[in-house]
Structure formats: structure tokens, C-alpha cells
């Protein structure tokens, strides 16, 4: 096999590999990603039921109801709009009213958000950046400029 043929083989292999990967990536980016929405945008019906997305905001004061059993109901707010959330499972340690959180799940037909994952940070002063930004844009929360060394979004609990 000549050098040229070998090069052609190598290049076609690489091209084949790359195009396969490109196809996979394009396909996966259509279906495998979650968009982030604030309660206001959900209230404005920007997203329909059955679509997986991330809902972020503050846990509304006085909204947390622990039913009998493992289901928990609470509401996520950006002060302009409030979305009720149902979650079954163990909440992260720092989940509490007034805390900035992100939940992942889908809207149900009745307008409640069924969360499969609740992410709160293992840090008292934590505000998820998406939530902080959305709240800042609405002038609700100014944030403290000197945030402490921060930690984790995936330190939450999830439910398969």
C-alpha cells in the first residue's frame, strides 16, 4: 500500500468517524437538552406540558407541605409568578423556604410541575447562577458581590 493510499484510508476513517459523531451530536442536541425557565415564563405559557425543562427560582414562603408519606409540595417563585411543584423523594439538606433552587421535571396538565430532581446547594448563601441572573434581571435580588467560595449544583437529590 502506498503512502498516498494509506493517507486516503486514514482520512476516510477519520471523516467517517467525525460524520458519525456529528450526526449523533445533532440528533442528541435536539432531544437531549433541558431549557431553563423562570416561573414568569412558565406562567406566560412559553412551555407546554410534557416537555422536560429546568424550573428555577425561590421556594415560596409558607408553601412547603409535607404530605403523609414521601411526597412534598411546594411552590417556586420569582415574585412575579409562582408555580406549584410536586416532588416525591428526599429533598436536599439545604432545601428550605426562601432558598434559591433548581428543579428538573415536566409540567402536568393541571399546571403543576412534577419534579424528578431538586437541586439546592450545600451552601447557605448559594444562589444558582441561572436563578440569580433571572432574579437580578427582575430587580428582585441584588446578590452579594462577595459570594463565598461556592459549591455545587449537583449536590442535590434526584429521582430516576
Amino acid at each position: 500500500m502506498t503512502r498516498r493510499q494509506r493517507r486516503a484510508t486514514l482520512i476516510s476513517l477519520a471523516v467517517a468517524g467525525l460524520s458519525l459523531a456529528t450526526l449523533l451530536v445533532l440528533f442528541a442536541l435536539r432531544s437531549g437538552v433541558d431549557y431553563f425557565y423562570t416561573p414568569s415564563r412558565v406562567a406566560a405559557r412559553e412551555v407546554g406540558p410534557g416537555v422536560s425543562f429546568r424550573l428555577g427560582g425561590l421556594v415560596a414562603q409558607g408553601s412547603v407541605q409535607r404530605g403523609q408519606g414521601t411526597a412534598v409540595m411546594f411552590a417556586v417563585t420569582d415574585t412575579k409568578a409562582t408555580i406549584p411543584v410536586v416532588y416525591e423523594g428526599i429533598l436536599p439538606e439545604l432545601f428550605r423556604e426562601g432558598q434559591g433552587i433548581i428543579t428538573v421535571g415536566r409540567l402536568e396538565a393541571d399546571g403543576r410541575f412534577r419534579a424528578t430532581t431538586v437541586l439546592a446547594k450545600h451552601d447557605e448563601n448559594y444562589m444558582p447562577p441561572e436563578v440569580a441572573k433571572a432574579l437580578k434581571e427582575q430587580g428582585v435580588w441584588q446578590g452579594d458581590a462577595k459570594a463565598p467560595p461556592s459549591t455545587s449544583v449537583n449536590a442535590g437529590t434526584r429521582q430516576k
Partner: peptide, 18 residues
Amino acid sequence: GAKISVGAPYFDLTFVPL
């Protein structure tokens, strides 16, 4: 300006087949 998160479903569809 859209905020998205790319999670396990994306990687299951791309990384695993490779």
C-alpha cells in the same frame, strides 16, 4: 441568551454509541 443544560440523555446518545 437561552439557558439550557446538557445532561445524561445527550451523552447517552453520543458518547455511548462511539
